[in-house]
Design a protein around this nucleic acid. Structure first.
Lengths: 253, 253
DNA sequence: ACCTAGCAGCTGTTCAGACCACACTGCCCG
DNA sequence: CGGGCAGTGTGGTCTGAACAGCTGCTAGGT
């Protein structure tokens, strides 16, 4: 019947106020907060309290500070870097296994490709084609992976769903870091690499033809093929149940 | 060709060292870091520097501080609360339209139900059945919505994918806030309400029978039916493209 | 011998003041 | 007209201090 008392620490109250001001739109991305010493007066707290609050907001990706600026901390729009950093930490703490990230990529990738097939513009198609060209031109694994990521980023953009876009970007970054090279798409001029690029061309063709079902199916299969080699039988099964029924039998063994 | 120079701030170096120590397993969850004053000596920096570093680590969910402890900051295992908090902020700041939230729920809900059908235990089935009972017993809209949310939460739990679970929980909260009552599932003893509950029973039956395809299809349709009434024709189309081909034609008009 | 109230010490929290390095501004001089 | 240079305000860091809360020990009473 009693609610737990919340012992508010001073800097938490400061964080909450600034957070609300940003979320409510009072401060838009690109705006500048008052300088630290002014915030000290406004909030009626000590400088270190304000600074600790700013450190928290900075680690969340809401603000950015730079010495010498005449305008105070800058409100920056994207919290994606902060989310990526934390998610990466979660994976490193073994709180989230890699197989679940790949699982998510298969789910979200299929949906994004399906949506993109219906909503894409000609400009999206051009950017996807450019990304595939960059994959072919890549000489090292990092460049190749970056181009691959670029392709998927365009797909998410074309899908027009911000949730898929934000989370997909974060998960993609995290997987890129975690499986760097070892499990990722092959970089050499091998048969696997050509096959991987050919898969992307087929996906692009499906999206061009507004064939969402095919695009989704191809995207799932490509992701499964790219990562299944590095997983054991049980983990592969957790991925295979997400594939279409007809291909599930042939790949789940 | 040039990499941006990283002006190291002292507290960032401290964060990095402690972060690495935790990730490497040198400090396991439940362990205690040295007290602030000891860290000051170890790192050779000022007190405020150590404290700002600890604030960052705390906002990432890696450590927890409490006054009076004889042992210093505690290393805590789960980063999930921090992730949820940041993701909620991202959703709030992007001002994501309702249709995109529903779109995401259809995508993630279908996948979660598919996975749950394969991985569920008997205990999960009991909890789902209990949630449905709670829906039937509900007399007001809020209780009904809470029971519905509970059902989906169990499904996500059974699906065993933490990314799906974390993001799904945040999005579910967001939709609950945004469409509170107005668009949500019907609360009265209407035909729609009985139909809504019957849908959940069918989903539970499919999950019980380990029929992932059916569970996924039913979940998508139920979500679509629940929210499509409040959306216009163009928005309904963005949802309908996510449904199965055979039902798409009959519902997309 | 056992229990309990009180005390001392350590912890985190907050504050105030000071100094430094840096970036921007505007003036002055070539 | 252009470039160098000091002034000024910014964030970054450090020091010292005081306060509140918890822990663990201890002295006193039962």
């Amino acid at each position: 019947m009693f609610t737990p008392v919340d012992k508010k620490r001073a800097f938490e109250a400061v964080v909450q106020q600034i957070e609300s001001a940003i979320y409510s739109g009072e401060y838009a991305p690109g705006d500048f907060l008052p300088p630290e010493r002014t915030l000290v007066e406004d909030f009626g707290v000590g400088r270190s309290t304000v600074r600790e609050a700013l450190r928290i907001l900075e680690s969340m990706g809401l603000v950015r500070t730079s010495p010498g600026s005449r305008s105070g901390p800058e409100v920056c729009g994207s919290v994606t870097p902060g989310l990526t950093r934390m998610l990466r930490g979660a994976v490193r703490m073994e709180e989230i296994p890699v197989v679940e990230l790949v699982q998510y990529r298969i789910i979200a990738g299929a949906a994004a490709n399906r949506l993109a097939a219906h909503l894409r513009t000609d400009e999206h198609l051009e950017r996807m084609a450019a990304a595939i060209e960059a994959m072919e031109a890549a000489t090292d694994a990092a460049t190749f992976a970056a181009a691959d990521d670029g392709f998927h980023a365009v797909v998410r953009d074309a899908a027009g769903n911000r949730v898929l876009g934000i989370v997909g970007g974060v998960i993609q970054d995290a997987t890129l870091d975690l499986v760097a090279g070892a499990v990722g798409p092959p970089a050499g001029a091998s048969r696997m690499r050509r096959e991987f690029i050919a898969d992307h061309r087929r996906i692009l063709a499906a999206i061009t033809g507004r064939d969402g079902d095919t695009a989704a199916r191809l995207a799932s299969q490509t992701l499964y093929d790219a990562y299944s080699g590095a997983l054991d039988k049980d983990q592969r099964h957790r991925l295979a149940v997400l594939l279409e029924p007809d291909v599930r039998d042939s790949r789940d063994h």
